[in-house]
């Protein structure tokens, strides 16, 4: 780890000013990802601006009936918040499925959105990686990729986004709010993460110098009956190999509304809009759920060793939607 300057910001404007346009300065939230990456040499900032003390640690109801979540709210506080648990249970479940109790106490919502991939080539600075070192190549395509992307990847990068929280936020149309020297801005989460293409090192659409200040969730009655299911290679404290955030509203045997987002299958949380289109208006049942999954997964381009993810996601969609339907019928 190289030596660096450290400053604490006390308000949003001050934080933005401290960051300026210096490409070697980073905001430091909980540090659970950035400090790790600094130790491995992936990140080598010259200056850290500590934003943990910013007054962005509240979860509040919006007048429309949604929620506004501050950027420095910890994962633990987010998952414990009664309104999150009541209105968006899948979001609470997603956060609780991530990392460990210790890390959830430290990690912040803003930092979670900006997590870097856990691809073993990205985190090893002695190996090529187009995301870390543009143009150096992607060894995962020919190498170890059993937990890499099946959707939206390119020959340049097949890494997956590691966040669980962001999968649920994506399902519920979250909007990211940020502040820059030129004033505030907002980005729907759907537009927040950039397509991989041939620029895997460019991960988000955040303008340079921007500080994430929070996330808003619009009201979503369908989310009250929602669920997050995560599959991983041990029962806890592991990144997903496939996950699903799902919400389902069935009336009179017909799907009125549905939300689906996939985790660990793409460079970003993957909103399954094609699947949702198949579901809405369809007769509820395993057949419709499978058809929805197939509609989404038709675009899958698995690598030699991750084809199982297509089956996994299909099975997850059928299983979780069936459970939600059963729950509704009770």
């Amino acid at each position: 780890m190289r030596e660096f300057d450290y400053q604490r910001a006390h308000d949003v404007a001050g934080a933005v000013a401290l960051l300026g346009t210096d490409p070697d300065t980073r905001f430091l939230g909980g540090g659970t990802n950035l400090v790790d990456l600094m130790k491995s040499g992936v990140e080598r900032p010259a200056r850290l601006v500590d934003i943990r003390e910013l007054p962005l640690d509240d979860v509040e109801s919006t007048p429309e009936g949604g929620l506004r979540i501050g950027a420095t709210v910890t994962n633990a506080d987010l998952a414990a918040h009664p309104e999150v648990r009541r209105r968006y249970p899948a979001l609470a479940q997603a956060v609780l499925a991530g990392a460990s109790g210790q890390l959830r106490n430290m990690a912040t919502v803003g930092g979670n959105l900006l997590q870097r991939t856990r691809c073993g080539y990205f985190t090893d600075v002695t190996r090529p990686c187009n995301k870390r070192l543009p143009g150096s190549g992607c060894p995962a395509v020919q190498g170890e990729h059993h937990n890499h992307a099946i959707l939206g990847a390119s020959d340049h990068c097949v890494a997956v986004h590691p966040s669980d929280m962001a999968v649920a936020l994506t399902a519920f149309d979250a909007v990211v709010h940020f502040e820059t020297a030129d004033g505030p801005g907002r980005l729907p989460l759907a537009d927040f993460y950039l397509p991989v293409g041939d620029t895997p090192h460019r991960e988000t659409a955040l303008p340079p110098g921007a500080l994430i200040t929070g996330v808003t969730l619009p009201p979503a009655p369908v989310a009250a009956r929602s669920r997050y299911r995560k599959v991983r290679e041990r029962a806890s404290y592991a990144f997903a190999i496939g996950s699903l955030a799902a919400a389902l509203d069935i009336r009179d045997g017909v799907v009125r509304d549905a939300r689906l987002a996939f985790g660990a299958v793409a460079s970003r949380p993957w909103r399954a809009l094609a699947a949702e289109r198949v579901l809405v208006g369809a007769a509820a049942g395993a057949e419709a759920y499978a058809a929805a999954a197939d509609a989404e997964l038709a675009a899958a381009r698995p690598l030699p060793h991750n084809g199982y993810k297509v089956d996994l996601m299909r099975n997850l969609v059928v299983a979780v939607l069936s459970e939600l339907a059963e729950e509704a019928a009770r």
Binding site: R118, G120, R234, A235, S236, Y237, A238
Partner: peptide, 15 residues
């Protein structure tokens, strides 16, 4: 590849 305790899984409590 993944030479750490997130890449090399040993059983934890929940297992």
């Amino acid at each position: 590849v993944g030479a750490d305790l997130a890449g090399y899984h040993v059983a934890t409590h929940a297992d």
